[in-house]
């Protein structure tokens, strides 16, 4: 690497990192700044925003900048409770996805090379159909007249328990969330597992490690980057999701995504919607940095 002058490194860095940086500065940072400003404004009487300067025709009326939306957020523990609940659902979804995705990703990574692409394709294919249609399909599967519900309720009856309704419940929301986000766990896991050198496992075997030990000592630690990025890709989008609780949820399934959507639509309170989103982004970033810290810590242990 002796030929690398600092200048050529800088140039390469600029060439690789520059275009995405520029794109995101324009199409993400500026719009986000607009939204941050929004959180310091008054909501417009009809939705949208109240003017910054005093309207000429109106003596009274609120205008200019304010922190009242923040004050409203912190005036009650209500919103913190919605956050907590949403994080709980996101965590449960992430764990369920991990549990389901890992064996499949491992199998794909260890299959013969010519079958791998096909198997990955089979994971993605269902997602080329329409999102809502897939969620509605779950409404059918979980509905009270479905085979699944009948089997479940027969089992419950045998155990002497009351029949349960699957649809319109937190369980249905979880199933829907897992279904919608599963590929986001499988793909990063697979791309990570696929690069593992089989020689490592053979070496472990030669050293007398049993199957389970080989997994815990070799495969699992090596796959952690994949686990973390998959978890991020599931955990975070679940927080913003509102369609799944809308369709499959019951009377208590309100998540932060529903709340934010509602501020922009039903309530037409953009400033408060922005505050909620900023709080969500901050919460997510702190979770992400915690995870990154854990990942680094885990990476250091042998």
């Amino acid at each position: 690497m002796t030929r690398d002058t600092p200048r050529s490194t800088r140039a390469a860095r600029l060439l690789t990192g520059g275009p995405p940086l520029l794109f995101l500065l324009v199409f993400f940072v500026i719009p986000s700044l607009i939204m941050v400003l929004t959180s310091f404004r008054f909501p417009g009487e009809f939705g949208g925003l109240a003017p910054v300067t005093a309207p000429a025709d109106q003596a009274a009326g609120e205008y200019g900048f304010t922190t009242e939306a923040y004050a409203f957020f912190f005036s009650d523990t209500l919103y913190a409770r919605v956050f907590l609940k949403s994080f709980g659902v996101a965590l449960a979804t992430t764990l369920a996805c991990l549990l389901m995705a890992y064996p499949l990703a491992l199998l794909i990574a260890r299959s013969e090379k010519r079958f791998r692409n096909l198997m990955v394709l089979l994971v993605i294919l269902p997602f080329a159909s329409n999102f809502l249609i897939r969620v509605y399909a779950w409404a059918i599967i979980l509905g009270p007249q479905s085979a699944l519900s009948r089997v479940a309720n027969t089992l419950l009856a045998l155990l002497g328990m009351e029949p349960a309704t699957l649809l319109f419940s937190p369980f249905a929301v979880l199933v829907g969330m897992v279904y919608v986000h599963l590929p986001f766990m499988i793909l990063p896991l697979y791309t990570n597992l696929e690069k593992h050198d089989p020689a490592l496992l053979d070496a472990a075997q030669d050293l007398g490690a049993r199957g389970w030990q080989r997994f815990w000592r070799v495969t699992w630690p090596l796959s952690l980057p994949g686990v973390f990025s998959g978890s991020a890709l599931v955990f975070i989008p679940v927080l913003g999701m509102f369609a799944v609780p809308d369709i499959l949820g019951g009377t208590r399934d309100i998540l932060i995504g529903n709340l934010i959507k509602d501020q922009f639509l039903g309530t037409r309170d953009w400033p408060f919607g922005s505050v909620l989103s900023i709080m969500l982004t901050l919460a997510v970033l702190s979770v992400a940095s915690l995870t990154a810290w854990f990942a680094r810590a885990a990476g250091r242990t042998p």
């Binding site: 909501p43 009487e45 409203f72 501020q263 039903g266 309530t267 037409r268 309170d269 408060f272």
Partner: peptide, 8 residues
């Protein structure tokens, strides 16, 4: 707008 916020 304030009624809407309270209702929400």
């Amino acid at each position: 707008r304030s009624q809407r916020r309270l209702l929400s």
